[in-house]
Design a protein around this nucleic acid. Structure first.
Lengths: 376, 376
DNA sequence: TTCTAATATTCAAACGTTTGAATGTCAACA
DNA sequence: TGTTGACATTCAAACGTTTGAATATTAGAA
């Protein structure tokens, strides 16, 4: 019943309370191999006393001594991006069974925060790091810092395997092809495409997939209808970009019956832009997105999209990090891994078979009631 | 150049490298008060050597010794709920300047995970805990466990101040009134209301606000048009609930020109349900939501909603926790605090002034093409 | 010259664990 | 009777840091 200055119950408290040494108590409570030699009665007594006093092992002391923190730093580029959240969830699910905790940090697309958090992660002696690079991720020496500290690292949604960093991401090329083929199957031939920002990693392979599928079908794009999102910092700005692209597409005067948007937010922007101009989705124009984030699911019409298996990707990243830690423990050299998850087409109501009548005449802006809403 | 088995550089390494004792190095590098007595030249030498070797203080050893973890456990009920994310972000912003880190955990609406994480948070000696109770939060002894360990706790989005726990949440009553008044101002009188699930804390005050505003305007609700969402575990199920409610409202045969939905996802469900039945939003029926989550912003039409200042709420929660820690440190008793943030009406395109023609005849289901999409 | 005080640095003990080695005890075997 | 080994428990050192107390050096004051 000693008055403890700290509010926490320690091994010493338990030891004193039941008359054994700290060692014995530790051995029992941490279920060390040695505990098989501890008398069953003693074991029980110690356990019950620990429970009674509300003992919780101090993770700090334990980590210090064991030289293992049981922590994986997870650095999300922007947690408000639904995309990140789901991956983070997969990671947590993968770490959980191994008794690891994820130190989840939200860099809020700010470079400075990213650095700060990286430092924190190192100071907290994270045994591994997972980076979720949802949006633009500038090539810097950031990862060099981690590598210097010999901490295993896995990056999600970006291919850095060439730089020796394990990478897991969706097969963007296949996804792009999948999206276009869906539109072709519906009979569309006059298809507008919105490519991703130049700086963004996914943009190029996704576009390559789209072109491949087009080539295979012998379809060509009207260059005036191939647009590109500008480089932007805010992931939510894909929506604004989509609205802007819709405006440009209509202004070009070229006929189109379908839009293949870079991602779901862009697609939602396109829907907004076209709808406000009097174009009906999907009757007059089909729209397809990419990612399958919540907003695409609950919008009306629901957005046809290419699903990324985000949770699975997070899970895999977690497993890889744990494996890498294990390997390093064993002194085994581990080569960088690489996996592309298979994307999946999810058909909703924003795409429909081509109807002859709408192909002939180009859309024109009916009402300019393009009230740009305060979108925050 | 001693070969260290651990990959990390310690104070001892720095000390040896520049010929001073560990103490001096520690004093300099941690900028302890004593460092004013250390010669300027020595200081500089130590600092540069630390930098050169890539020294990072070990947060575990430091916490162990200082008996402060500089960590706040943040327990989110469901991180995939956009609502949670923004609050978490506010919390992080509030903790950052004080040098605290948030140990962010996603309970994924699972009771068992909640318990596990709570244990982890205690083991990691979090100095405070913030709970984000976005969805159903069963009354249990969970918080009792925390209280027993004398860890300051703040709860967001739930009023537990009566139980002595500091609470910050939006003024649901005012928000409900705000929403209804908006519809009344637009001329609507035949208004359907979807109340929140019984188990959910926000439901009651929000409904109270709606009734108050109705009473003040002398308007009465058609009891057949006052529906209620069922108790559900999945926060995303508000969407399904909204669709179902729309169906019921139409089936009732009662005329209505506006729907006041419990939250944004419900509103989006209503939009889906009504649209699929041929009712146009907002021409034939206005819809208003609550929360202002991303899907409501990027849907078309954008959903008129009641905005919760989520980031600010998170920020406040962070400040309170830090204050409580400080107070406990000083031995000062701190009473539980309570704050209701002011909600704000954000008008988008899902609401419009009443038009006479649509009031007279009740809506009827035109096509039963209520294709329920696989909504993941 | 001796005392005081400021400056500059180090000692050594903690913080709460874990764990290799040590210390017992007891029964069975040679 | 000693030796072995299984069983049961404890010692003591370490993990990397912080910090009150101690020590050593110098300069200025009495």
């Amino acid at each position: 019943m000693a008055q403890r200055r700290s509010g926490h119950v320690t091994l010493l408290d338990v030891a004193r309370a039941c008359g054994f040494s700290v060692s014995t108590v530790s051995i029992v409570l941490s279920e060390a191999p040695l505990s098989q030699y501890v008398a069953a009665a003693t074991r029980e007594q110690i356990r019950s006393m620990a429970r009674q006093l509300g003992y919780h092992p101090d993770a700090y002391a334990r980590s210090l001594r064991r030289r293992r923190s049981q922590t994986i730093g997870v650095l999300a580029f922007d947690l408000s991006d639904p995309f990140c959240t789901l991956i983070a969830r997969g990671i947590q699910a993968g770490l959980q069974p191994a008794g690891y905790v994820s130190l989840l940090m939200d860099a809020q697309t700010q470079r400075k925060l990213f650095d700060t958090f990286l430092k924190m992660i190192l100071e907290r002696r994270a045994e591994g790091v997972i980076v979720i690079a949802s949006w633009v991720f500038e090539e810097t020496n950031l990862l060099g810092d981690i590598e210097k500290n010999q901490v295993p690292i896995v990056i999600v949604s970006r291919d850095l395997s060439a730089r020796g960093i394990s990478s897991v991401l969706v097969d963007n090329e296949a996804g792009g092809a999948l999206a276009l083929r869906h539109l072709l199957d519906l009979g569309h031939r006059q298809i507008a495409v919105i490519r991703g920002p130049e700086e963004m990693f996914d943009s190029q392979p996704r576009w390559a997939g789209v072109r491949r599928a087009a080539a295979e079908a012998g379809v060509e794009f009207d260059p005036k209808l191939v647009l590109q999102l500008p480089n932007l910092v805010d992931p939510a700005s894909g929506f604004e970009g989509g609205i802007e692209c819709a405006r440009k597409m209509l202004a070009s005067g070229r006929p189109f019956t379908a839009v293949l948007a870079f991602d779901d937010l862009t697609a939602l922007g396109v829907v907004r832009g076209l709808t406000c101009a009097g174009v009906r989705i999907p009757e007059d124009c089909s729209v397809v997105g990419f990612d399958e984030i919540l907003p695409a699911v609950v919008a009306t019409p629901g957005i046809t999209t290419i699903r990324q298996p985000m949770k699975e990707m997070g899970l895999l990243a977690a497993q890889w990090v744990l494996e890498a830690i294990e390997a390093r423990e064993q002194g085994v050299a581990q080569p960088a891994k690489f996996h592309q998850a298979t994307p999946e087409l999810v058909v909703r109501m924003s795409t429909a078979p081509l109807r002859i009548q709408s192909t002939n005449q180009p859309h024109h802006i009916t009402t300019e009631r393009h009230t740009m809403e305060a979108s925050h």
